[in-house]
């Protein structure tokens, strides 16, 4: 690093030699995350929700589908139903616990799939450049032209309701933006001297992508993907709310919100509960994403 650049570098503190112990990038990211109280708290909340979802049959006090005409819309704190019941007299706590399964799944699974597919497309487009890039990116631009909500609704509308179909439509919705991020980061990395140097050693494209490109692209793509989890949760709930996602009587926060809607004046707390869950979960996902971004924002 030369004196010319040193001035700026010194000002940003990046040419200052740091820690004596060698630490890989992921190591230091993990260390930073572990010191961030907000991220820790949010992760704990999400983990608790996830655990509850996994062990739903064990934890849930009732059968989620068991209706009761007698205790419809029981208020919170009812002796038999801690959080009350819904419009068909099903235990709300149980429904929320089972709903966590679908809602969390719909938050994470489409993002995971879209990251894999979109990220790969992006890396291929970014690394190959030229005509390949143009074909991939212009195709993606077509999808990009529609607002994500509209796109999800349209695809689900065509495919019909159901978990699998929602998964497909949400995945398709998120592929374009993830491919874009993947492409732009890859294009940057590809032009770095270390990639040029790797090409000069006679390494194949695949070797270069595996050895040099992936390690630098995964971070930014992951940050972006994590910020989409909350969007996916809300979007999945939205689809269910519109009747395009999960089919009743399946428990899902969005569809619960939808079916409880008419009860908002009679039992407001009951109606709001699924909304609160959606809010808390997506909020936590967002805050974790922010934490991840800050933790990775190191000029190493």
């Amino acid at each position: 690093m030369n004196t010319p650049t040193s001035t700026q570098a010194a000002a940003s503190g990046s040419d200052i030699p740091r820690a004596r112990i060698s630490r890989s990038f992921w190591h230091s990211v993990a260390r930073r995350l572990s010191r961030d109280p907000v991220t820790i708290a949010c992760t704990t909340v999400l983990l608790v929700i996830a655990l509850v979802a996994v062990f739903a049959p064990v934890i849930a006090p009732y059968d989620p589908y068991k209706t009761s005409i007698l205790v419809r819309l029981a208020p919170m704190g009812h002796p038999d139903h801690l959080l009350g019941t819904d419009e068909l007299g099903r235990d709300l706590l149980t429904r929320l616990i089972y709903g966590a399964r679908t809602s969390l799944f719909m938050g994470f699974a489409p993002i995971l799939l879209a990251t894999l597919i979109g990220g790969t497309l992006g890396i291929v487009a970014g690394y190959a450049g030229g005509a390949t890039n143009m074909i991939i990116m212009r195709t993606i631009d077509v999808f990009y032209a529609f607002p994500s909500v509209l796109l999800a609704v349209a695809i689900s509308g065509v495919l019909g309701a159901g978990i699998f179909n929602s998964l497909v439509s949400l995945t398709l919705v998120f592929i374009p933006s993830l491919a874009r991020v993947g492409e732009s980061v890859t294009t940057q990395v590809r032009n770095q001297d270390f990639v040029v140097a790797a090409r000069a050693t006679g390494a194949s494209d695949w070797q270069i992508i595996r050895g040099h490109v992936l390690s630098n692209v995964v971070g930014p793509v992951m940050i972006y993907a994590s910020s989409l989890v909350s969007v996916a949760i809300v979007l999945a709930s939205g689809l269910s709310f519109l009747g395009l996602g999960i089919v009743p009587p399946e428990a899902e926060w969005g569809s619960m919100l939808s079916t409880l809607r008419p009860a908002i004046y009679i039992a407001p707390m009951n109606a709001i509960l699924p909304g609160i869950m959606i809010f808390v979960t997506s909020m936590c996902a967002n805050l974790i994403s922010d934490g991840l971004r800050t933790a990775m924002d190191v000029k190493v």
């Binding site: 690093m1 650049t5 940003s12």
Partner: peptide
């Protein structure tokens, strides 16, 4: 006169109070 990291640039910028936020 100095090499990278010698503090020459920071010293000079101090006269205009141009500092990074840290």
């Amino acid at each position: 006169l100095g090499e990278s990291g010698s503090g020459k640039s920071v010293t000079m910028r101090a006269l205009m109070r141009l500092f990074p936020s840290t």
